[in-house]
Design a protein around this nucleic acid. Structure first.
Lengths: 151, 151
DNA sequence: CTAGGAGCTAGAGTCGGCTCTAGGTCAACC
DNA sequence: GGTTGACCTAGAGCCGACTCTAGCTCCTAG
């Protein structure tokens, strides 16, 4: 079970992570790798599985809207090693707050969209003759004031 | 109960919606208003409450990542009036799918962040002496392979 | 009558996050 | 030995969604 390090080329890493080779070089340039990326004798980048794992984390954080500067700060803290756990924790908590806020907004939107979809589905269920003027039955609309309009 | 139309200036609309006056002019230029924005004798924009309601919808859709072109298409459908409800429905369903997908990604991120926060909280709870080497207790890590690393 | 404030237009600038180009190196195969 | 094909660097370009600027008009208050 002797694990041998598995050294990957940039193309392989691109394929595994879904990032482009351009993006990988860009991320390196932006300081998003915990360890400096090694080079082979020809000057080509050589990545490890650890790099791929770290990139996976980065991708998830990016997909949840963490900006590159924050990701860089976090990377730097990890690179520095033990002793700054409070700072990492603070950064993570901040991002957690941002994510839950995004989810709140998305939920609000989903309510609106579901309401509107319901309106249109009902409308399209009616026999064609009955359609059009229907605008006044606005009474029991949900609290989303803006959703009242039948647009 | 005779509602009188309440004509608003661009500054008032900006204040109510949270959009900048620049953004309001920009949105108009981009065709995001259902009805053409009226002007007073001096050429200034005059908005109605309906405009503000519509903007509120736009803001929610934008905040959930709907791009301006999609918002413009939807606006155009509404502007055209009855007869294109299927298309509106299709557009809304598409956006609904996009929103639920975003929520899926955010949930994944939240799992990761919560896990890491947990790790750091535990770590900081330990008496200082016991800290550092702790890296090998990776057994029962959650399925998120990438979350295993104690970074 | 003039100073301030809100509004106008057209168009330039900004920012984040890549993406692409130009011009080159290197190793492997036919 | 010529041709791929993967990789390299530095830097330019792009896209979306605003944001800002310059130079103007208009209204109101003092």
């Amino acid at each position: 079970m002797a694990e041998f390090p598995a050294r990957l080329g940039i193309g392989q890493v691109a394929e595994r992570t879904g990032l482009s080779v351009h993006a990988l070089r860009f991320y390196e340039h932006e300081g998003l790798f915990v360890n400096p990326v090694r080079r082979d004798p020809g000057g080509r980048r050589v990545y490890t599985e650890d790099d791929v794992d770290w990139l996976t984390v980065c991708i998830i954080l990016r997909a949840s809207g963490m900006p590159l500067p924050a990701l860089r700060r976090y990377t730097e803290l990890v690179r520095q090693g033990h002793g700054n756990e409070e700072q990492r924790l603070a950064l993570l908590r901040e991002h957690q707050a941002s994510v839950t806020d995004q989810m709140r907004k998305l939920t609000e939107c989903l309510d609106l969209v579901r309401f509107k979809i319901g309106v249109y589905e009902d409308l399209l269920d009616q026999p064609v003759a009955d359609r059009r003027c229907h605008a006044a039955s606005d009474e029991d609309a949900p609290r989303l004031a803006s959703a009242r309009a039948t647009h």
